[in-house]
Design a protein around this nucleic acid. Sequence first.
DNA 1: ATATTTTTGACTAATTTTGTCAAAAATACT
DNA 2: AGTATTTTTGACAAAATTAGTCAAAAATAT
Lengths: 102, 102
Amino acid sequence: MLSLGETIRKLREEKELPLRTVAAYLDIDQAILSKIERGLRKPSRDLVTKLAAYFNVPEKELMLAFLADKVLYEVADEEMGLEALKVAEEKLKIYVAKNEKQ
Amino acid sequence: MLSLGETIRKLREEKELPLRTVAAYLDIDQAILSKIERGLRKPSRDLVTKLAAYFNVPEKELMLAFLADKVLYEVADEEMGLEALKVAEEKLKIYVAKNEKQ
DNA sequence: ATATTTTTGACTAATTTTGTCAAAAATACT
DNA sequence: AGTATTTTTGACAAAATTAGTCAAAAATAT
């Protein structure tokens, strides 16, 4: 699965749009968009929504990449990273199951 | 598995120490420690290390709880949370495997 | 070689996180 | 019950991180 940055760069290049154009729509500086596409900056949640609307792709698709990137960033370079993800996953499963009951 | 806050509250109560005492050692205000124990604040990574030293438990143990909490916090209330964790886990596995080769 | 697009990096603004403080609430001890 | 101790609360301040601007340099396309 592609990172969010790779995904939106691909979408943008498919449409042959310059950073300038997309950045203008998103109302951000093109420098930021450039950095986001290359993974040097994390976009805000809000931007992800705007990007999905702009490129006409399901928001969930981009949001999944966005969240995965964010999580990965948190545990990267951590010795216990993988284990921590597993623990978090188990806990989240329990949490989700509880809330489904209601 | 207990959250980091629950873990350190348990450790502290076992030794029958007041917040004041532990907070003084950690060089933070007792209000913060109170909030950390109840999960209202996230401790810094640094504090986790200090806590492990103070309570004489393996740092990895607390660090695992700390990281799991942190990750959980990132994806809680996100519709795609669980899926995002799975994606992140897969990606991290690949990343770890690559680095092991060297 | 000129025009266009992308990247870079220094700088500022905004937001989030981390912490302090003092008082209120809760708990424990005579 | 009354007092002392501990814990919690919430308003506030400081510090750190993140998001953004801008202009120039570098890369790419025409």
